[in-house]
């Protein structure tokens, strides 16, 4: 929290072929969106292990966005 505004700390798991590509395309089109998400690229959402998500919350993530 800074200055009373809650700025969530969010971890993203993006599929290389889908969501990651869509995010790149959003960049090319210069769409703007909130800067709160930190992305871990995986080749497929199927790679995401239950441990990863729980670990992220255990480490204090306010949210986990998995995108395929």
């Amino acid at each position: 929290m800074t200055g009373g505004v809650f700025n969530p700390h969010i971890l993203g798991f993006f599929c290389h072929w889908c969501c990651y590509a869509a995010a790149d395309a959003a960049g090319v089109s210069r769409y703007q969106y909130p800067p709160n998400v930190r992305v871990i690229r995986v080749m497929c959402t199927g790679r995401i292990d239950l441990r990863f998500i729980l670990e992220a919350f255990g480490c204090g993530a306010d949210g986990v966005f998995t995108g395929g």
Partner: peptide, 23 residues
């Protein structure tokens, strides 16, 4: 706090909408 969403390579606007809404 945890979501699973879909946006294909061709769906940049959808991706932006999803991420904005989620944040």
């Amino acid at each position: 706090r945890m979501v699973l969403e879909w946006a294909s390579a061709a769906e940049a606007p959808r991706f932006v909408e999803l991420i904005t809404r989620y944040v």
